[in-house]
Write a protein that binds this DNA or RNA. Structure first.
Lengths: 351, 351
DNA sequence: GGCCGGACATGATACGTATAACTTCCGGCG
DNA sequence: CGCCGGAAGTTATACGTATCATGTCCGGCC
């Protein structure tokens, strides 16, 4: 369709495919100033260097021509890209999709972009997961669940913000946490108040801080409650795995637990299925709790009692911490509060 | 040997923050060749231009020094960024998260990156949604559901691949479709075979090709089946909305439908809740079908009969089409097959 | 012997931007 | 009067890469 009719430069032929690009030099010509002046004005560094009148005419020309600074050129010159990498274990998890949304929104306000790295299991094992992309990143935000990716990141020399990780981990420039332990304690208190004494914990079979934290907090809470038992059953993070783990927990030689605490709503959904397959009812015979408060939590019946995690805010806080770190500030470690949402999947312990 | 190694340039100070970056010139010095030779070798354009021995030593030097080409410089020179934009209506939807995964994987194989634009509702209304980012994109893949974003894209002069859109839409360089109509026909055939005659269609209240297609295919299928009725009830894409719409469909003045076809699994989950709240059973009194086959489909009970959409493959096909378009090929419109997955939420029509 | 062509190699740009360094113009002050 | 200092601009670079233009050295062929 469109033909190239632009005058050819003598050497090279880098030209852009589509319409001719508008450069800062074009704006300068239109406004009757030098290219440097355009850069100063649009970069808002013109006070005392360019008269207000010329500044305005530069802005007008830029607007009229539809000028967009070339980001590659800017990055080359400044050495920064205004782009952050978000490393998550698997994007298909609604939780991390929401984290991404929050991070993207905050980034946009600061003129930053976000690229996503859904961790090896989603992408396939690359010898160097970040490759040249490393040259186009200013910093990284990583979930502590993406363990393998973290190893590759180590030594990249990029500012790193960790999500839900040990605050003492010195690989990170900053850490943002959810009050996971607090959430777990709320779950424990809720079940104790309902009279439950024998508890199963369907614990995520993933080596990461956030799940270890759930385990520790629950262990502490029930250790402090006389006459209670807490049995840990590992599980993968899927409906099917939750079903299998719950079946194990409910059919062991020990007295059957009256409540199952699940590390994830998806697991909890599977657990509810297991309860019913054994001819029992939720919550009359067995109470079930989840974690995350995904859309799933209100899609199943009964609706899940679960811990609501502020996912978008979590991503936003991570991005803010990264932006602070890039500005040279040492951001304080933050912990975001979480809330127990009581719904139909929990009830009084059976007599 | 080497000639000039000025200690410090007098002007500018763009240097990189972290460790000193390795450039192609450093590699050239280490390998005892010119910078041009390095570029040729690593760009795999050296045959007949560089001896095999020198090529190997260049590669060795690059490896030893941990050289990574600077993408900003490369983009500036070539005018391409090897980056595509994926525009989706809302990432929190598991379906689009999976589309993203597929697209990212295919892109990575071609050395491309993917950035995500989760459409205004997720980001907030920006006057120019893409801003300068436009200068850093080679092409766009957009869901037809992201209507507002498409308007902003129009005229950007970027190659555009549309997902699930009218093949005749001339805004797109290529279109990749799912066989949505085929899926809808399979649902219709399944329900007809089970003896259902009064059907409700909980139709997504979203103005996009893919949902219009569902409506058309269903209308055609039931129009061709004598003695059947199809009633359309609009709904938003959420559990709560599905519950409300299903309640409307089941409590109207007309004879109650015996089956509800839902445009999305999330809606179907809500519909199942509605059925039970009315004191009815799924599937004995009312059959329910979904669309997408999300994790949700097997989390609820009974598990949903639904149309499985190959989401990852869909994203991958979109990316392939874009890569073809960027290579100057006119990619043929593709339609990916879908499958009906029969589960417990459908059964014989009540007598 | 002169010349041609292919292999090998280097030099020299230019992409578009941000900013240091320089120039000019004035008003004010010693 | 001479000089200083700040405002208002411009000029000149350099970021790192890809590629065109040049150049040299051969062996082979007339």
């Amino acid at each position: 369709m469109s033909s190239n009719d632009a005058p050819r430069p003598a050497t090279g032929e880098p030209a852009r495919a589509g319409a001719a690009r508008v450069t800062s030099r074009d704006v300068a010509r239109a406004a009757g100033v030098s290219q440097a002046a355009v850069s100063l004005v649009l970069g808002d560094k013109w006070r005392g260097r360019v008269s207000a009148a010329k500044a305005e005419s530069v802005r007008a020309a830029a607007r009229d021509l539809g000028y967009r600074p070339n980001l590659a050129a800017r990055s080359l010159r400044t050495g920064r890209t205004r782009t952050a990498l978000l490393v998550v274990p698997a994007l298909t998890t609604e939780f991390f999709a929401r984290v991404h949304t929050g991070a993207t929104r905050t980034a946009a306000d600061a003129g930053f972009g976000v690229v996503l790295y859904p961790s090896p299991e989603g992408i396939g094992p690359a010898p160097d997961p970040f490759g040249s992309a490393r040259t186009s990143l200013d910093g990284v935000i990583a979930s502590s669940m993406a363990v393998d990716a973290l190893a590759a990141l180590h030594g990249a020399g990029l500012p790193l913000v960790m999500l839900d990780n040990d605050p003492d981990d010195d690989r990170a420039a900053a850490t943002v946490n959810l009050d996971i332990a607090g959430g777990a304690r709320q779950v424990a208190a809720h079940l104790l108040a309902l009279g439950h004494r024998r508890i199963g914990h369907l614990a995520a079979d993933v080596d990461s801080w956030t799940f270890a934290e759930r385990g520790r907090a629950l262990a502490d809470a029930f250790a402090a409650a006389p006459g209670t038992t807490l049995r840990r059953v590992p599980t993968a993070l899927s409906v099917a795995a939750g079903l299998a783990a719950a079946t194990t927990a409910l059919t062991g030689p020990e007295p059957r637990p009256t409540a199952l605490i699940c590390d994830d709503d998806v697991v909890a959904a599977g657990a509810c299925k297991a309860v019913r397959r054994l001819g029992l009812r939720v919550p009359e015979d067995v109470s079930v709790t989840g974690f995350d408060d995904l859309a799933l939590a209100t899609a199943v019946e009964p609706e899940l009692t679960t811990v609501r995690l502020p996912a978008e805010e979590f991503g936003a806080a991570g991005m803010r911490a990264l932006l602070d770190a890039l500005d040279g500030h040492r951001p304080a470690a933050r912990t975001l509060p979480v809330d127990l949402v009581t719904r139909g999947s929990t009830g009084p312990a059976p007599a």
